[in-house]
């Protein structure tokens, strides 16, 4: 195994984050914090509590998850798209490094960045709203699984994308709506029965619900189903990536 190669990609990706600290770290932390200030501290104080949890605290897991989903997708997508765009992907393809090692490097770096952002956002949130974490291990597990899975999803988009428009279209038109409609700001139990059923087709619901359970012990769907959903999506993404490398899809000619 060429783990040094994977580590080299990982370090280079993390160094890229370091070079763009404002854009990579500060911007998402500040924008997510604004949600806490507006929806949590300002509007939240006038809202009813949900499942016995104050509104400000209720939205924290959803917001953290929303940011992690979007950052994981966009970071991993840009990570592999950029070498394709500037031509340096030839180095990856001509080096004695396997698909798995390449994926570990890029996806590992994107997931690490998401986890750092998640931690920063939670620390920031604790200044605005009262928070508790009932199941810290489950919370960490959800964070790690979501970061890795959606980084893998972003990696797929980065390989698939032929231009910057395509690179942005999936995060903008699919991930963002699914996240907003996935229960970040509300419990799906407040929806009419028909829309509750529709919502259950949104995979993000299971992530946010499970993640919220790790905080407050309350969830919209069973925690086991949440874990199964994220594991299933992880397996699906892994299969797609494997096929992409196997066939050389948009990497080799």
């Amino acid at each position: 195994m060429n783990w040094r190669g994977a580590l080299t990609i990982y370090k280079a990706e993390m160094a890229r984050t370091g070079r763009t600290l404002m854009q990579s770290i500060l911007a998402p932390v500040i924008s997510t914090s604004l949600y806490f200030v507006v929806f949590g501290a300002a509007i939240g104080s006038r809202m009813e509590s949900i499942d016995g949890v104050g509104y400000g605290a209720f939205i924290v897991p959803g917001l953290v998850m929303m940011m992690i989903l979007m950052q994981s997708v966009s970071n991993a997508a840009i990570g592999i798209y950029f070498p394709k765009f500037n031509g340096t992907v030839y180095e990856l393809l001509s080096a004695p490094i396997s698909a798995l090692e390449i994926v570990v490097g890029f996806v590992g770096a994107a997931a690490t960045k998401s986890l750092i952002l998640g931690a920063l956002v939670m620390v920031t949130a604790s200044f605005f709203v009262p928070m508790e974490i009932q199941h810290p291990l489950a919370m960490i597990a959800f964070l790690v699984m979501t970061s890795v899975t959606f980084s893998l999803f972003g990696f797929i988009i980065g390989i698939w994308a032929d231009n910057f428009e395509q690179l942005n279209i999936v995060p903008m038109l699919i991930v963002t709506p699914l996240t907003f409609l996935g229960g970040s700001f509300y419990s799906i139990s407040v929806l009419p029965p028909f829309w509750q059923t529709v919502t259950l087709f949104n995979p993000v619901v299971y992530l946010i619900s499970g993640f919220r359970w790790s905080f407050y012990g309350v969830s919209d769907v069973d925690i086991g189903i949440s874990l199964a959903a994220i594991a299933g999506f992880f397996a699906f993404c892994l299969f797609i990536v494997w096929r992409m490398f196997k066939t050389g899809y948009r990497l080799k000619t």
Binding site: R4, G5, L7, T8, K11, E91, L92, A95, P96, I97
Partner: peptide, 14 residues
């Protein structure tokens, strides 16, 4: 120097 070091690392060399 970083670009050259990156290439060397990709090839698994210390």
């Amino acid at each position: 120097k970083d670009a050259v070091a990156y290439s060397r690392g990709l090839f698994g060399k210390p």
